[in-house]
Each structure stands twice: as structure tokens, then as C-alpha cells.
Design a protein around this nucleic acid. Structure first.
Lengths: 162, 162
DNA sequence: GCTTAACCGACCGCGCTGGTAGGATTTACG
DNA sequence: CGTAAATCCTACCAGCGCGGTCGGTTAAGC
């Protein structure tokens, strides 16, 4: 699995906030009930979004959360990054100083590291997909039913590699 | 992290095989020593590639492994798929019948599931990157030093989401 | 001062990942 | 035939990250 449930929950939360007018804050409890998610866990998730300054909060009664910016100005790249940490396809991509076996990339006797080329391309593919999608896209999509059905990529079934 | 070390090791193994002429089989021991990887673990990795019919094997003395097809005919999509299983950005993408909280996608009261849209796009980005790269690309890249330096995607540092 | 809700940190079971161990089977070679 | 070299197979294990809970503290409204 590529993304953990933190990403799933966090994105849902963002969409939920995007559906509200930013006038009155939305309580986590409301989101948790609407989406059927554990409240206590949502707290941890939203904390990341707050640290990343994607949402703002007000404490006390009638407090809650709202988007720090307009949904059009929030790229999902930022959101996922805040929730999951750096988007790295492979260990060595993020942790350059831990000398693991995985990371014999550089000192590979001068020849280019083939896997690094591959992971770089994959990483590019992911980040591009995320950057091209804004929160507003998701909010709009969640409003109407299913509009113009995304051209879903054909992928071979799990085990069958043939 | 997106891919596990199985993918890393497996891809390296494939590149290593691609560098050899397919006349004489290459022993795992040779690969393990060349790449500095644990032999016993490599066995498990290569087993997946064999089941996916990406490599062939001969037992006994002077046995070993070789590519089942020419490197040009092997897309990294197949390789990674064989090593990691299905490329799914989120739990519910692969396991449609386990009724987890995550999977309240469909019965979402008629409105489109926003996260599904996002994960579908991401999945598309990944699979496209993998499909567009063949083993031959990696083998060639590993032969010369570092030729035309891939345009690496700019990604903000780990913690800093601002 | 009670209620609501954000905030914070500690804790915990479970499953998966990365890796080891030990053996069984097959083949080349002398 | 015997031995060495290799694939093949299964079981096992430690560590750790993930998903989630709990208890408590602070802050704001009424």
C-alpha cells in the first residue's frame, strides 16, 4: 500500500472542511460522525494539517477547524505531504545519511544507479499527479454525483503478471 | 515509503541479469556479491520473478538465472508488480471485499468519493511511469556513467510543508 | 463554573518487512 | 558414484510502523 490511512482520513477531512463555508468552524466531532471515523485518531491527523498551516483552529465551545486558504489554492501535493511526510519511493531517497545496504547508490563505482533512475521517474509521476489536483477539484467532485468519469488506468490483476 | 526493499533488490537483480549475455546463467551468489545483498533473502525475491515468468532458472552446478525475454520487452511495470503485488495507493483499491471503514467509498449516498478520484490519479501517474520504462533503459543507464541527468522533480524537504 | 472542544503525550496490539536457518533436490564434473 | 554447486522450499524470528485508545490539560462560550 502506498499511502496509509492518515492520508485517507486527512484528505476526507479537508474535503469536508472545503464543503463548509469558512465562516463558522467545524468541530472534529462533526467530521468524525459524518465520515464514520474515530475521533481520537482524527485529532492526530488534523494536528499534522495544522502544523502545515493548511487548516486553522479555534478552541473552546463552538470552536473547530477551517481551511487556511481557499480550496483552489490548496494543491493535494501539500496535503498529502503534510499527512504522510516526504513522498519517497524508496528508503534511501529520504534518509541520505543512514548508511543502509539499500543506499549503495552513489558509490557504485562511477556507473549510474539504475534503480535510482526508476524511482525518480515514479516519484515524478506521483508528485505531478498530486500537484495537478487541487482541493477544489475534490470538493467539486464530491458535490455532484460522478460527472465525467475519470479515465481509469487499466492495471492487470494482482497476481497475474503475464 | 512506497516500495519495499523487495522492489529495490529485485530491480537490481533484473538489471544485473540484463547486463549479462543470456547464454550462460548467472548464479544468485554472484549477484549477491556484486550488489552486496544477502543471498538467502535474494532467493525469496527471485522466486517472485520466476513465478511471474520474468526470469528462468537452471538448477544444479553451473545453474543460475537469466532473463526470460529481451530487456527491451520487459516493462518495469511488470517487474515491480511481480515484486510488490498490485500497485494500489490505498487499502480499498485492492481489497474490495473486506468491509473496512476505509471503504465507505461506494455507498457514499450517491455522491462521488473524492479520495477515490485522487488515488486513481496517483495510481495512474505511478503506473504510467513504470510502463514507460523498460529494463533496457535501466541496463543502458547502468552501463554509461550518468548521461543526460534526469530532470529530478523538485520536492520540498520532509517536515517543511510551508 | 459548567460544557464544549482543541490540544497533548503516553501507551499498545497487530501485522508486515527484512532477514535467517536448515534442509531437500537437482545437475555438472572428476 | 561422490561431491560440490546451485536452485528450491518452508519455517521461523525480531523490530517497527500503523491504526487506534486513553487520560488529562487548556481555552473559550454561556
Amino acid at each position: 500500500m502506498i499511502f496509509s490511512s492518515k492520508a485517507e482520513y486527512g484528505v476526507r477531512l479537508m474535503v469536508e472542511l472545503g464543503r463548509q463555508s469558512p465562516e463558522h468552524p467545524t468541530s472534529l466531532k462533526a467530521v468524525a460522525e459524518a465520515e464514520g471515523l474515530p475521533l481520537a485518531y482524527l485529532e492526530q491527523v488534523v494536528a499534522r494539517l495544522r502544523k502545515a498551516e493548511l487548516v486553522m483552529s479555534a478552541r473552546g465551545a463552538h470552536g473547530g477547524y477551517w481551511l487556511a486558504r481557499a480550496p483552489e489554492e490548496i494543491s493535494m501535493d501539500e496535503v498529502v505531504q503534510a499527512l504522510e511526510g516526504a513522498i519517497a519511493p524508496m528508503e534511501c531517497f529520504v534518509n541520505e545519511h543512514t548508511e543502509r545496504v539499500l543506499c549503495s547508490h552513489e558509490p557504485d563505482a562511477g556507473r549510474g544507479c539504475a534503480t535510482k533512475l526508476l524511482w525518480t521517474r515514479v516519484q515524478g509521476g506521483i508528485i505531478r499527479s498530486l500537484q495537478q489536483t487541487t482541493l477544489a477539484d475534490l470538493v467539486e467532485f464530491s458535490r455532484r454525483g460522478e460527472p465525467h468519469r475519470e479515465p481509469q488506468v487499466v492495471l492487470p490483476a494482482a497476481g497475474a503478471a503475464a
